[in-house]
Design a protein around this nucleic acid. Structure first.
Lengths: 133, 133
DNA sequence: ATATTATATTAGTATCAATCTAACTTATTT
DNA sequence: AAATAAGTTAGATTGATACTAATATAATAT
């Protein structure tokens, strides 16, 4: 697993989260969602592509298998930490924001062990599924 | 609390940990400990100084009060997470290395809440004190 | 106190990440 | 085909991290 940066992480997640449903994600959508200008998005996309995490097809951006896997892992880590935070009395929305600053730096296997030690929670505090694959 | 980078974090910790006892830390010591050349250390030191975390006196480097506070917080966060990792079955030395990659991004108050939720552990897996001030 | 040696600093360069504007190209849609 | 929208290239900037080579400043030994 290659290292990614915070912005690459955000971009990966935005791509995935924007492509629920039949609408393909385009550069300008990412630009709008991420609040950065198209050339800046393109720059991030280029690095993501070099890392084999996304692919482009006539302006449409999608995750590769590897990108999907990376996405899934980040989300699993993120939600597991959300549970941990939440159970410690930290507000779920606060937790979400803060955890996003470092979830991509946390080791997946470590997150799995932490998850196991807190009883393999099935959902995050917002009720979203935690995939324990 | 200002944001710091990983290298600034490492430098801060190296300064503190090298200045146990009567020997002041010098640029060349940091250069040796951190495995980076003196001008590169100086660069990091300059930023730390701009952030008010260190001060220099004829080649001697020391933490300011603010730097001490930042150091203490990072260490508290670090050790609390080490306990968490350790209790999840992760090897203490592995944990230490990995946690160092993101401990400086974790909110101190959140760490305090997490600490409380796991019983305010008094020591890290290596036996070092966790300061709960 | 001077010469030597060690240390610190400056100057200049490089890379990577993140960002922008302006210009240009390629699609899409009238 | 003309107009509009979207994507891309080019060029610049900033911040962080590094380096080498040169210079300046201390510290030490003679």
């Amino acid at each position: 697993m290659e290292n990614i940066t915070k912005k690459e992480r955000d971009c990966l997640i935005t791509i995935k989260e924007s492509s629920n449903g039949p609408f393909p994600v385009r550069l300008k959508d990412l630009s709008a969602s991420m609040n950065i200008k198209p050339p800046s998005v393109l720059e991030i996309l280029t690095r993501l592509q070099e890392k084999g995490l996304i692919k482009k097809d006539r302006g449409m951006v999608a995750l590769t298998d590897k990108g999907e896997e990376t996405y899934k892992r980040i989300v699993m880590i993120h939600r597991t930490l959300e549970v941990l935070y939440s159970r410690s009395g930290i507000d779920a929305n606060d937790a979400c924001k803060k955890i996003g600053n470092f979830d991509f730096l946390v080791d997946y296997d470590d997150a799995k062990k932490i998850s196991a030690s807190i009883g393999n929670p099935k959902t995050c505090p917002h009720g979203k599924k935690i995939d324990g694959s």
